[in-house]
Design a protein around this nucleic acid. Structure first.
Length: 250
DNA sequence: GTCCAGATGT
DNA sequence: ACATCAGGAC
């Protein structure tokens, strides 16, 4: 991430883009209200949830977290103490449980070996160092690492996911070929670097992608962004949320 | 591109 | 029966 401020001077269109992004934020917030993310009782629970939620609905993650809590195993030592097969059984609702079992143990190993098992110390690292350490764990990619940076460590890092990319495409701010870093730059370069703002914004985007801006059959008539959106305004979406044949906009 | 490999809504 | 889900590795 580039926090060095080289482009706080002048970037063509910066003022307009910032205004647009803030407008989208305000509309989503007005429509959905505060999201209270991340739903967890501790920073360590955020780390576990960030790994378990990969490509899986949050519903299933809640079951797995509840299983871990019920056995008093939601801790660095608790997870490391469980045999692989037993931990896999507890988190089975989150799918890919063999891979995720190893991912949980690998993060816990880093926290124990390099930070004396102190999750707070682990998260207090300089953000760049923490991100590199997370990305060095097999099974932690950019989105998972940034979710931990933002929601567990409170760092102003914008998290990009599939919902975000889809919504940006429909708003005409992306075409589909952008990298994670490009999309992240779009937000971080054009918004104040504020962890509370990034927290709420990403949460709102996920809620919007989940409830209204669906992959197929988006519910445009109910959408607070429809007048800004290429999908609703150009394709002539009908009141039932579907489109006339042949006018599909990705 | 393929693999990983459960729960839920339609 | 079928699609989708708070991804990542290869």
């Amino acid at each position: 991430m580039c926090y060095s401020g080289e482009e706080t001077q002048r970037e063509p269109g910066r003022e307009n883009l910032q205004g647009f992004l803030l407008d989208v934020y305000e509309r989503l917030y007005a429509h959905y209200g505060p999201r209270h993310w991340w739903p967890a009782e501790s920073a360590f629970e955020v780390i576990v949830g960030a790994i378990l939620t990969q490509q899986v609905s949050w519903r299933n993650v809640e079951k797995a977290i509840a299983n871990l809590k019920a056995r008093d195993s939601l801790s660095v030592e608790g997870i490391l103490a469980l045999p692989h097969a037993e931990l896999g059984l507890l988190i089975r609702p989150t799918r890919y449980y063999n891979q995720k079992t190893q991912r949980l143990k690998d993060v816990c190993l880093v926290i124990r070996e390099d930070f004396g098992g102190d999750t707070g110390l682990f998260l207090q690292q300089e953000p760049g160092a923490l991100r590199r350490r997370l990305l060095a764990v097999r099974g932690i990619g950019k989105e998972t690492a940034d979710s931990i940076l933002l929601y567990a460590a409170g760092r102003p890092v914008f998290v990009i996911d599939h919902y975000t990319h889809r919504i940006l495409k429909r708003l005409g701010l992306a075409h589909g070929g952008e990298s994670y870093d490009q999309l992240q730059h779009l937000f971080e370069a054009h918004l104040p670097l504020n962890a509370a703002l990034f927290n709420e914004y990403h949460a709102l985007l996920v809620t919007h992608g989940h409830r209204l801006c669906l992959k197929t059959g988006p519910r445009c008539p109910e959408c607070p962004l429809s007048d800004l959106c290429a999908h609703a305004s150009q394709a002539g979406v009908q009141p039932d949320g579907r489109q006339p044949a042949g006018t599909s906009v990705p």
